[in-house]
Amino acid sequence: MNTLITCRHVDFGYENHDAVVDLSMEVDEGDYLCVVGANGSGKSTLVKGLLGLIKPLKGELTVAEELRRTGIGYLPQQTAAQRDFPATVREVVLSGTLSRRAAQSSGGAGAKEGTPSRRAAQSSDDAGVEKGTLNRGAAQASGDAGMKEKTPETSFQRRRPFYKMPFYSAEDKRQAAACMEKLGISDLKNHCYRELSGGQQQRVLIARALCAASRMLILDEPITGLDPSAIQDFYRLVRRLNRDEGVTILMVTHDVAGVISQANRILHLQQRVVFFGKPEDYRRTAAGRRYLGGEDR
């Protein structure tokens, strides 16, 4: 089992306050990790930290090399503006492939997959950690208009020439089609995003996230606003991705009772780690009982 993400005594936060304090955990390949906690307990901050949008203030965050190369798929919370956005499903899913371009042009020469994951520069050198974030920085830099690429070109890289920027490549389109097929939304591809049901919209966003990165998905409160049957449908879908496609899942949710049967790890945050471990053990803790209600015991 490869470890994809390791946190050792990590603090995340903004200038004036720490949202997450002294977090130690790891995410292994194939995990289905559930992050639970009250509002304001640092869940979203943790997600931002894992995505590389904010840097850890303290401690050590190690991201496996392969994950760094392919990136992490992300399903953000839906905004109100999105729900009536005029865009076809195809347009939305294709937009996920943008990051693949960025990741590949900044990543090393390795193929997209196939290299064994290895733990990125460990312990003693903080430089190793720093490098991780820097790499990401490079990916971000090359993201803007593709004009500032720094890394030397290799045969594996698919650099977008300037004049091709307005178009998606055949590979991008194939990728998007495969993702839509995987989620059963191929029939909807010319439909308008705003006319879909909540569950369908969620599928479209997952397809987009899978286009961006097929190894690991971070889902931020994905079931908000879905009706009960759509929620069950959504859970089935995530479980299928996790089991059959081998996608590592990290889901932030309030619906602990709904996912505890599916997840294989639970992380309960309240700034600090209240619990990190198997769901069976979580049921036995005081925090778990409070979240799950008594009847499970």
Binding site: L51, G52, L53, G71, I72, Y74, L75, P76, Q77, T79, Q82, F85, A87, E91, V92, L94, S95, G96, L98, S99, A102, A103, R136, A139, Q140, A141, S142, G143, D144, A145, F162, M165, P166, Y168, L205, R208, A209, A212
Partner: peptide, 23 residues
């Protein structure tokens, strides 16, 4: 013309665009 897809990505979903390395 040149940044059309990035403009779409940023307009549609800022957090996703940010997470996937669009400036």
């Amino acid at each position: 013309v040149i940044c059309y897809h990035r403009i779409f990505a940023v307009t549609f979903d800022e957090s996703f665009a940010k997470a996937t390395g669009v400036n």
